[in-house]
Amino acid sequence: MAAARRSLNSRRDGWFMVSPITAFLIVVLAIPLVVDCIYAVSRVRFETLRAPEFIGFGNFAKVLFDHEFWGAMLFSLRFGLLVTAAEVLLALVLAIFLAPLLAKRSWLIAPLMLPMMVAPALVGLMYRLALHEFVGPIPYYFVLLTGDSPSFLGPDNVFWTLVTIETLQWTPFALLILYTAYQSIATDVREAAELDGPSTWQMLRYIELPLMRPTILAVGFIRFIDSFRVFDNVFTLTGSGAGGNTMSISIYIYEVFFRRNDIGVAVAASIVLLAVSFGLLTLLLRWSERQA
């Protein structure tokens, strides 16, 4: 009897403890998700936000047959993969080469982290100024040294300019995590390996990198999610670009929602994105678990 009462009390305490976070999640996630599901199957505009008209799955069909949606998905996928690869590689090289210096002068980590402390929207605005041919310092030095300046935001270069900007801003994040992982490799492991007299490359290839692999995968995973859903810096720098050539999936949803006032379609697109992301992330997680 006493054991049953204790169990009941314990269960009640458990419910009591998780109730705040449950309530929070219901308010910030579940209710908006329910509203989203209603809007996704409705004809709804700003004028009819409180009176959506049920139309079935027409909004999903519109999204799936919209070539702009797939163009935006392709942009985000390409952008996300390239940026992730660049950031992880660059951060890995920096983490390994700067490790001795950072071990001695750890304060250097602070200035290295500065780029990621700037809000992405401000980074976009900053480069809008920095790359302007007549007021920006970068074109100024190009003109000074070569007599001409490349078209950083022209149709041929704009994608690579955006990739570079994103990489420069977020490589410090990857660097911080990878440097920590590199430093946390136990000294005795390295000492044991050195008994076999490996070269620096062999030490890196067969000892250090395998030990860092779970962290590398986790960093790549986080950075891919972040860069796939890129919005702020691209939006403030180029918008959706000439003919939509810099339209990420987040910008696509924003434009359909606000500019076209087609809220049902925008919400349907976001649900499709959620489903695709969920599937993709599940696959990636399983793969990374196997790799780890």
Binding site: H132, E133, F134, P150, F152, L153, G154, T238, A242
Partner: peptide, 21 residues
């Protein structure tokens, strides 16, 4: 017109004209 004109709006155009170029 400047090579980056495809990213120009009011402010960028004023900066270009205002530079005297």
């Amino acid at each position: 017109s400047p090579k980056d004109s495809l990213s120009y709006e009011y402010a960028e155009a004023n900066a270009a004209f205002g530079s005297g170029q």
